[in-house]
Design a protein around this nucleic acid. Structure first.
Lengths: 188, 188
DNA sequence: GTCTTATATATGATTAGTCATATAGTAGCA
DNA sequence: TGCTACTATATGACTAATCATATATAAGAC
Protein backbone atom coordinates (compact mmCIF):
# COMPACT_ATOMS: atom_id res chain seq x y z
CA UNK A 1 0.00 0.00 0.00
CA UNK A 2 1.49 3.28 -1.10
CA UNK A 3 -0.30 5.51 1.39
CA UNK A 4 1.84 3.97 4.10
CA UNK A 5 4.94 4.90 2.15
CA UNK A 6 3.81 8.43 1.45
CA UNK A 7 3.28 8.87 5.20
CA UNK A 8 6.68 7.32 5.82
CA UNK A 9 8.16 9.87 3.40
CA UNK A 10 6.41 12.76 5.11
CA UNK A 11 7.48 11.63 8.58
CA UNK A 12 11.06 11.19 7.46
CA UNK A 13 11.15 14.85 6.43
CA UNK A 14 9.85 15.91 9.80
CA UNK A 15 8.09 14.47 12.84
CA UNK A 16 4.37 15.09 12.73
CA UNK A 17 1.01 14.24 14.27
CA UNK A 18 -1.89 12.71 12.37
CA UNK A 19 -3.53 16.09 12.42
CA UNK A 20 -0.43 17.76 10.96
CA UNK A 21 -0.30 15.17 8.21
CA UNK A 22 -3.89 15.82 7.32
CA UNK A 23 -3.96 19.60 7.46
CA UNK A 24 -0.44 20.51 6.38
CA UNK A 25 0.41 17.73 3.96
CA UNK A 26 -2.56 15.85 2.57
CA UNK A 27 -4.88 18.84 2.33
CA UNK A 28 -2.24 20.96 0.69
CA UNK A 29 0.68 19.53 -1.24
CA UNK A 30 -0.30 15.87 -1.45
CA UNK A 31 -3.98 16.36 -2.47
CA UNK A 32 -3.34 15.87 -6.16
CA UNK A 33 -0.64 13.28 -5.64
CA UNK A 34 -2.17 10.89 -3.13
CA UNK A 35 -5.45 12.02 -1.57
CA UNK A 36 -6.25 10.49 1.80
CA UNK A 37 -8.92 11.17 4.33
CA UNK A 38 -8.45 11.57 8.05
CA UNK A 39 -9.73 8.12 9.01
CA UNK A 40 -7.34 6.44 6.64
CA UNK A 41 -4.38 8.49 7.88
CA UNK A 42 -4.95 7.58 11.53
CA UNK A 43 -5.48 3.91 10.70
CA UNK A 44 -2.35 3.82 8.59
CA UNK A 45 -0.37 5.46 11.40
CA UNK A 46 -1.51 2.64 13.72
CA UNK A 47 -0.48 0.07 11.13
CA UNK A 48 2.92 1.67 10.59
CA UNK A 49 3.51 1.77 14.33
CA UNK A 50 2.62 -1.91 14.73
CA UNK A 51 5.01 -2.66 11.85
CA UNK A 52 7.74 -0.84 13.77
CA UNK A 53 8.36 1.63 10.97
CA UNK A 54 7.37 4.64 13.03
CA UNK A 55 7.20 5.43 16.75
CA UNK A 56 5.24 8.00 18.63
CA UNK A 57 5.50 10.03 21.79
CA UNK A 58 2.46 11.58 23.39
CA UNK A 59 2.65 15.28 24.11
CA UNK A 60 0.32 16.20 26.94
CA UNK A 61 -1.31 19.55 26.39
CA UNK A 62 -3.44 21.39 28.92
CA UNK A 63 -5.45 23.70 26.73
CA UNK A 64 -5.83 21.28 23.81
CA UNK A 65 -6.21 17.53 23.25
CA UNK A 66 -2.99 15.55 23.59
CA UNK A 67 -0.92 15.05 20.46
CA UNK A 68 0.70 11.86 19.29
CA UNK A 69 3.90 12.87 17.54
CA UNK A 70 5.16 10.31 15.06
CA UNK A 71 8.62 9.86 13.58
CA UNK A 72 10.30 7.23 11.46
CA UNK A 73 12.46 4.46 12.91
CA UNK A 74 15.61 3.01 11.28
CA UNK A 75 13.64 0.08 9.79
CA UNK A 76 11.05 2.60 8.61
CA UNK A 77 13.64 4.63 6.74
CA UNK A 78 15.07 1.43 5.27
CA UNK A 79 11.62 0.41 4.09
CA UNK A 80 11.03 3.84 2.57
CA UNK A 81 14.34 3.67 0.71
CA UNK A 82 13.49 0.20 -0.55
CA UNK A 83 10.04 1.33 -1.73
CA UNK A 84 11.42 4.44 -3.42
CA UNK A 85 13.51 2.21 -5.65
CA UNK A 86 10.81 -0.34 -6.44
CA UNK A 87 8.92 0.07 -9.66
CA UNK A 88 5.17 0.24 -9.05
CA UNK A 89 2.63 -1.01 -11.57
CA UNK A 90 0.88 1.70 -13.60
CA UNK A 91 -2.17 3.00 -11.78
CA UNK A 92 -5.52 1.89 -13.19
CA UNK A 93 -7.33 5.04 -14.02
CA UNK A 94 -11.08 5.24 -14.25
CA UNK A 95 -12.40 8.45 -15.74
CA UNK A 96 -16.17 8.65 -15.43
CA UNK A 97 -16.53 11.34 -18.12
CA UNK A 98 -14.65 9.28 -20.69
CA UNK A 99 -16.76 6.25 -19.84
CA UNK A 100 -19.87 8.37 -20.26
CA UNK A 101 -18.74 9.71 -23.62
CA UNK A 102 -18.02 6.20 -24.80
CA UNK A 103 -21.76 5.55 -24.53
CA UNK A 104 -23.10 9.06 -25.11
CA UNK A 105 -23.68 8.92 -28.87
CA UNK A 106 -27.42 8.46 -28.44
CA UNK A 107 -27.74 11.64 -26.40
CA UNK A 108 -28.62 14.93 -28.11
CA UNK A 109 -26.07 17.77 -28.11
CA UNK A 110 -28.13 19.54 -25.49
CA UNK A 111 -27.48 16.67 -23.08
CA UNK A 112 -23.78 16.17 -23.83
CA UNK A 113 -22.71 19.81 -23.78
CA UNK A 114 -23.64 20.56 -20.15
CA UNK A 115 -21.70 17.48 -19.09
CA UNK A 116 -18.63 18.74 -20.93
CA UNK A 117 -19.04 22.25 -19.56
CA UNK A 118 -19.22 20.97 -16.00
CA UNK A 119 -16.12 18.89 -16.52
CA UNK A 120 -14.38 21.90 -18.03
CA UNK A 121 -15.18 24.00 -14.99
CA UNK A 122 -14.01 21.31 -12.57
CA UNK A 123 -10.80 20.75 -14.55
CA UNK A 124 -10.07 24.47 -14.69
CA UNK A 125 -10.37 24.61 -10.94
CA UNK A 126 -8.00 21.71 -10.53
CA UNK A 127 -5.51 23.27 -12.93
CA UNK A 128 -5.63 26.56 -11.02
CA UNK A 129 -4.98 24.62 -7.82
CA UNK A 130 -1.93 22.89 -9.28
CA UNK A 131 -0.60 26.15 -10.66
CA UNK A 132 -1.01 27.85 -7.28
CA UNK A 133 0.93 25.02 -5.73
CA UNK A 134 3.69 25.41 -8.30
CA UNK A 135 4.01 29.06 -7.35
CA UNK A 136 4.26 28.11 -3.69
CA UNK A 137 7.00 25.56 -4.35
CA UNK A 138 8.83 28.13 -6.47
CA UNK A 139 8.76 30.59 -3.57
CA UNK A 140 10.07 27.94 -1.19
CA UNK A 141 12.87 27.27 -3.62
CA UNK A 142 14.12 30.84 -3.82
CA UNK A 143 15.57 31.19 -0.32
CA UNK A 144 17.37 27.86 -0.57
CA UNK A 145 19.52 28.78 -3.53
CA UNK A 146 22.54 28.74 -1.28
CA UNK A 147 21.45 25.55 0.42
CA UNK A 148 22.82 22.08 -0.09
CA UNK A 149 22.35 20.15 -3.29
CA UNK A 150 19.87 17.67 -1.81
CA UNK A 151 17.34 20.40 -1.04
CA UNK A 152 17.73 21.93 -4.48
CA UNK A 153 17.29 18.54 -6.04
CA UNK A 154 14.11 18.03 -4.05
CA UNK A 155 12.65 21.35 -5.15
CA UNK A 156 13.54 20.58 -8.73
CA UNK A 157 11.96 17.12 -8.65
CA UNK A 158 8.79 18.40 -7.01
CA UNK A 159 8.54 21.20 -9.54
CA UNK A 160 8.83 18.67 -12.32
CA UNK A 161 6.11 16.49 -10.84
CA UNK A 162 3.83 19.50 -10.61
CA UNK A 163 4.76 20.48 -14.13
CA UNK A 164 3.56 17.13 -15.41
CA UNK A 165 0.28 17.36 -13.54
CA UNK A 166 -0.27 20.83 -14.97
CA UNK A 167 0.56 19.71 -18.49
CA UNK A 168 -1.83 16.80 -18.21
CA UNK A 169 -4.64 19.06 -17.06
CA UNK A 170 -3.91 21.45 -19.90
CA UNK A 171 -4.04 18.61 -22.40
CA UNK A 172 -7.39 17.58 -20.96
CA UNK A 173 -8.74 21.12 -21.07
CA UNK A 174 -7.70 21.69 -24.67
CA UNK A 175 -9.24 18.39 -25.68
CA UNK A 176 -12.49 19.26 -23.91
CA UNK A 177 -12.66 22.65 -25.56
CA UNK A 178 -12.06 21.18 -28.99
CA UNK A 179 -14.77 18.60 -28.41
CA UNK A 180 -17.24 21.25 -27.28
CA UNK A 181 -16.47 23.35 -30.35
CA UNK A 182 -16.80 20.36 -32.66
CA UNK A 183 -20.18 19.46 -31.23
CA UNK A 184 -21.36 23.06 -31.45
CA UNK A 185 -20.20 23.18 -35.06
CA UNK A 186 -22.15 19.94 -35.64
CA UNK A 187 -18.91 18.24 -36.60
CA UNK A 188 -19.57 15.38 -34.19
CA UNK B 1 -20.93 3.00 -8.82
CA UNK B 2 -19.89 3.56 -12.40
CA UNK B 3 -19.00 -0.05 -13.22
CA UNK B 4 -22.69 -0.87 -13.07
CA UNK B 5 -23.38 1.87 -15.60
CA UNK B 6 -20.59 0.82 -17.92
CA UNK B 7 -22.07 -2.68 -17.94
CA UNK B 8 -25.51 -1.20 -18.51
CA UNK B 9 -24.08 0.69 -21.50
CA UNK B 10 -22.47 -2.45 -22.90
CA UNK B 11 -25.64 -4.51 -22.49
CA UNK B 12 -27.72 -1.83 -24.13
CA UNK B 13 -25.57 -2.11 -27.24
CA UNK B 14 -26.01 -5.84 -27.34
CA UNK B 15 -27.10 -8.72 -25.11
CA UNK B 16 -24.16 -10.48 -23.57
CA UNK B 17 -23.01 -13.00 -20.97
CA UNK B 18 -20.64 -12.21 -18.11
CA UNK B 19 -17.96 -14.06 -20.01
CA UNK B 20 -18.58 -11.99 -23.15
CA UNK B 21 -18.36 -8.80 -21.13
CA UNK B 22 -15.03 -9.87 -19.68
CA UNK B 23 -13.36 -11.21 -22.81
CA UNK B 24 -14.81 -9.01 -25.53
CA UNK B 25 -15.35 -5.74 -23.73
CA UNK B 26 -13.36 -5.32 -20.56
CA UNK B 27 -10.24 -7.10 -21.76
CA UNK B 28 -10.22 -5.23 -25.03
CA UNK B 29 -11.87 -1.85 -25.51
CA UNK B 30 -12.73 -0.95 -21.91
CA UNK B 31 -9.38 -1.89 -20.31
CA UNK B 32 -8.01 1.63 -20.34
CA UNK B 33 -11.35 3.23 -19.65
CA UNK B 34 -12.74 1.23 -16.76
CA UNK B 35 -10.79 -1.90 -15.86
CA UNK B 36 -12.76 -4.60 -14.08
CA UNK B 37 -11.96 -8.13 -13.09
CA UNK B 38 -14.17 -11.15 -13.62
CA UNK B 39 -15.37 -11.43 -10.02
CA UNK B 40 -16.52 -7.84 -10.01
CA UNK B 41 -18.33 -8.22 -13.32
CA UNK B 42 -20.35 -11.23 -12.17
CA UNK B 43 -21.19 -9.63 -8.85
CA UNK B 44 -22.27 -6.43 -10.55
CA UNK B 45 -24.47 -8.41 -12.95
CA UNK B 46 -26.20 -9.96 -9.92
CA UNK B 47 -26.68 -6.53 -8.41
CA UNK B 48 -28.06 -5.07 -11.64
CA UNK B 49 -30.47 -7.96 -11.98
CA UNK B 50 -31.73 -7.52 -8.40
CA UNK B 51 -32.17 -3.81 -9.16
CA UNK B 52 -34.32 -4.77 -12.14
CA UNK B 53 -32.10 -2.93 -14.60
CA UNK B 54 -31.16 -6.07 -16.51
CA UNK B 55 -32.73 -9.51 -17.00
CA UNK B 56 -31.21 -12.79 -18.02
CA UNK B 57 -32.18 -15.97 -19.78
CA UNK B 58 -30.22 -19.15 -19.36
CA UNK B 59 -29.04 -20.84 -22.52
CA UNK B 60 -28.51 -24.55 -21.92
CA UNK B 61 -25.52 -25.89 -23.80
CA UNK B 62 -24.51 -29.53 -24.05
CA UNK B 63 -20.86 -29.30 -24.94
CA UNK B 64 -20.14 -26.25 -22.84
CA UNK B 65 -21.29 -24.74 -19.51
CA UNK B 66 -24.65 -22.99 -19.63
CA UNK B 67 -24.65 -19.30 -20.44
CA UNK B 68 -26.62 -16.58 -18.71
CA UNK B 69 -27.46 -14.01 -21.35
CA UNK B 70 -28.15 -10.55 -19.98
CA UNK B 71 -29.98 -7.64 -21.56
CA UNK B 72 -31.18 -4.26 -20.32
CA UNK B 73 -34.75 -3.60 -19.18
CA UNK B 74 -36.71 -0.38 -19.75
CA UNK B 75 -35.85 0.91 -16.23
CA UNK B 76 -32.26 -0.06 -16.94
CA UNK B 77 -32.12 2.02 -20.10
CA UNK B 78 -33.77 4.91 -18.25
CA UNK B 79 -31.15 4.66 -15.51
CA UNK B 80 -28.35 4.59 -18.09
CA UNK B 81 -29.72 7.69 -19.79
CA UNK B 82 -30.00 9.45 -16.45
CA UNK B 83 -26.44 8.53 -15.52
CA UNK B 84 -25.06 9.56 -18.90
CA UNK B 85 -26.30 13.08 -18.23
CA UNK B 86 -25.13 13.33 -14.64
CA UNK B 87 -21.83 15.05 -13.99
CA UNK B 88 -19.47 12.79 -12.05
CA UNK B 89 -16.85 14.16 -9.65
CA UNK B 90 -13.30 14.21 -10.99
CA UNK B 91 -11.54 10.92 -10.34
CA UNK B 92 -8.89 10.99 -7.64
CA UNK B 93 -5.74 9.81 -9.28
CA UNK B 94 -2.90 8.28 -7.40
CA UNK B 95 0.29 7.89 -9.37
CA UNK B 96 2.85 5.86 -7.46
CA UNK B 97 5.80 7.08 -9.57
CA UNK B 98 4.98 10.73 -8.94
CA UNK B 99 4.62 10.02 -5.23
CA UNK B 100 7.99 8.30 -5.28
CA UNK B 101 9.66 11.19 -7.10
CA UNK B 102 8.21 13.60 -4.57
CA UNK B 103 10.41 11.89 -1.98
CA UNK B 104 13.23 10.66 -4.19
CA UNK B 105 15.66 13.58 -3.82
CA UNK B 106 17.84 11.69 -1.38
CA UNK B 107 18.39 8.83 -3.82
CA UNK B 108 21.45 8.80 -6.10
CA UNK B 109 20.94 9.07 -9.87
CA UNK B 110 21.72 5.38 -10.18
CA UNK B 111 18.65 4.59 -8.09
CA UNK B 112 16.23 7.04 -9.72
CA UNK B 113 17.09 6.32 -13.35
CA UNK B 114 16.06 2.64 -13.40
CA UNK B 115 12.73 3.61 -11.87
CA UNK B 116 12.18 6.13 -14.65
CA UNK B 117 13.28 3.70 -17.33
CA UNK B 118 10.86 1.06 -16.09
CA UNK B 119 8.03 3.53 -16.07
CA UNK B 120 9.00 4.64 -19.56
CA UNK B 121 8.83 1.06 -20.82
CA UNK B 122 5.45 0.44 -19.18
CA UNK B 123 4.04 3.71 -20.50
CA UNK B 124 5.28 2.99 -24.00
CA UNK B 125 3.49 -0.33 -23.88
CA UNK B 126 0.29 1.32 -22.77
CA UNK B 127 0.57 3.94 -25.48
CA UNK B 128 1.09 1.25 -28.13
CA UNK B 129 -2.00 -0.51 -26.80
CA UNK B 130 -4.13 2.62 -27.05
CA UNK B 131 -2.83 3.32 -30.53
CA UNK B 132 -3.63 -0.21 -31.66
CA UNK B 133 -7.14 0.27 -30.33
CA UNK B 134 -7.48 3.53 -32.21
CA UNK B 135 -6.58 1.73 -35.42
CA UNK B 136 -9.21 -0.92 -34.70
CA UNK B 137 -11.91 1.67 -34.10
CA UNK B 138 -10.88 3.45 -37.30
CA UNK B 139 -11.32 0.21 -39.24
CA UNK B 140 -14.73 -0.36 -37.70
CA UNK B 141 -15.67 3.14 -38.72
CA UNK B 142 -14.85 2.74 -42.40
CA UNK B 143 -17.64 0.35 -43.42
CA UNK B 144 -20.26 2.45 -41.66
CA UNK B 145 -19.74 5.59 -43.70
CA UNK B 146 -23.12 5.06 -45.26
CA UNK B 147 -24.71 4.18 -41.95
CA UNK B 148 -26.97 6.35 -39.81
CA UNK B 149 -25.72 9.41 -37.99
CA UNK B 150 -25.90 7.82 -34.54
CA UNK B 151 -23.31 5.19 -35.41
CA UNK B 152 -21.01 7.74 -36.99
CA UNK B 153 -21.37 9.93 -33.93
CA UNK B 154 -20.46 7.00 -31.73
CA UNK B 155 -17.32 6.19 -33.71
CA UNK B 156 -16.33 9.83 -33.64
CA UNK B 157 -16.82 10.15 -29.87
CA UNK B 158 -14.93 6.95 -29.16
CA UNK B 159 -12.10 8.07 -31.42
CA UNK B 160 -11.92 11.32 -29.51
CA UNK B 161 -11.80 9.56 -26.17
CA UNK B 162 -8.95 7.38 -27.42
CA UNK B 163 -7.24 10.43 -28.82
CA UNK B 164 -7.19 12.02 -25.38
CA UNK B 165 -5.83 8.90 -23.74
CA UNK B 166 -3.08 8.76 -26.36
CA UNK B 167 -2.23 12.43 -25.95
CA UNK B 168 -2.01 12.04 -22.21
CA UNK B 169 0.35 9.10 -22.53
CA UNK B 170 2.47 11.06 -24.99
CA UNK B 171 2.67 13.98 -22.60
CA UNK B 172 3.75 11.60 -19.86
CA UNK B 173 6.37 9.96 -22.08
CA UNK B 174 7.87 13.26 -23.18
CA UNK B 175 8.02 14.43 -19.61
CA UNK B 176 9.72 11.22 -18.51
CA UNK B 177 12.29 11.45 -21.29
CA UNK B 178 13.09 15.04 -20.45
CA UNK B 179 13.52 14.16 -16.80
CA UNK B 180 15.83 11.26 -17.63
CA UNK B 181 17.91 13.50 -19.87
CA UNK B 182 18.06 16.23 -17.23
CA UNK B 183 19.26 13.79 -14.60
CA UNK B 184 21.82 12.30 -16.95
CA UNK B 185 23.04 15.80 -17.75
CA UNK B 186 23.28 16.45 -14.01
CA UNK B 187 20.75 19.24 -14.38
CA UNK B 188 18.62 17.83 -11.56
C1' DG C 1 -1.90 -39.99 -20.61
C1' DT C 2 -1.29 -35.56 -19.02
C1' DC C 3 -1.20 -30.73 -19.45
C1' DT C 4 -2.89 -26.55 -21.08
C1' DT C 5 -6.37 -23.55 -23.04
C1' DA C 6 -11.00 -22.12 -23.73
C1' DT C 7 -15.73 -21.72 -22.17
C1' DA C 8 -18.63 -20.33 -18.24
C1' DT C 9 -20.09 -19.01 -13.48
C1' DA C 10 -19.50 -18.50 -8.50
C1' DT C 11 -17.67 -17.42 -3.95
C1' DG C 12 -14.47 -16.53 0.10
C1' DA C 13 -11.21 -13.43 1.87
C1' DT C 14 -8.91 -9.35 2.07
C1' DT C 15 -7.43 -4.55 1.11
C1' DA C 16 -8.12 0.26 0.16
C1' DG C 17 -10.85 3.92 0.40
C1' DT C 18 -15.02 6.70 1.90
C1' DC C 19 -18.58 8.58 4.90
C1' DA C 20 -20.41 9.58 9.15
C1' DT C 21 -20.13 10.28 13.79
C1' DA C 22 -18.18 10.48 18.64
C1' DT C 23 -15.39 12.70 22.05
C1' DA C 24 -13.51 16.80 24.24
C1' DG C 25 -11.47 21.16 25.37
C1' DT C 26 -10.59 26.12 23.88
C1' DA C 27 -11.55 30.40 21.60
C1' DG C 28 -14.07 33.81 19.33
C1' DC C 29 -18.31 35.83 17.91
C1' DA C 30 -22.97 37.73 18.14
C1' DT D 1 -26.05 32.19 26.06
C1' DG D 2 -25.53 29.58 22.14
C1' DC D 3 -23.16 28.92 17.77
C1' DT D 4 -19.34 27.94 15.14
C1' DA D 5 -14.57 26.89 14.31
C1' DC D 6 -10.17 24.92 15.58
C1' DT D 7 -7.31 21.28 17.57
C1' DA D 8 -6.89 16.23 18.04
C1' DT D 9 -7.87 11.26 17.87
C1' DA D 10 -10.83 7.23 17.21
C1' DT D 11 -14.20 3.97 15.43
C1' DG D 12 -18.31 1.81 13.01
C1' DA D 13 -20.21 0.82 8.72
C1' DC D 14 -19.89 0.46 4.12
C1' DT D 15 -18.42 0.26 -0.94
C1' DA D 16 -15.28 -0.83 -4.52
C1' DA D 17 -11.76 -3.43 -6.00
C1' DT D 18 -8.48 -7.27 -5.99
C1' DC D 19 -6.76 -11.98 -5.43
C1' DA D 20 -7.34 -16.66 -5.12
C1' DT D 21 -9.75 -20.64 -5.83
C1' DA D 22 -13.63 -23.88 -7.04
C1' DT D 23 -16.51 -26.19 -10.34
C1' DA D 24 -17.34 -28.49 -14.88
C1' DT D 25 -16.76 -29.83 -19.77
C1' DA D 26 -14.37 -30.04 -24.21
C1' DA D 27 -10.65 -29.54 -27.48
C1' DG D 28 -6.09 -29.74 -28.72
C1' DA D 29 -1.08 -30.23 -27.84
C1' DC D 30 2.92 -33.01 -26.62
Amino acid sequence: MSLAHVILGLLQEQERTGYDLKTECFDQCIVHLWPADQAQIYRTLDKLEKQGWITCTVEIQQDRPNRKIYRTTAPGVAELTRWLQTHQPLPTLREPLLAQLHFAAQLPDAAILPLLEQELAARREKLADCEAQRSRVALEAAPVLSDDGATLRQQELRQRVLELMIQREQTYLEWLQELIEAIQAKAV
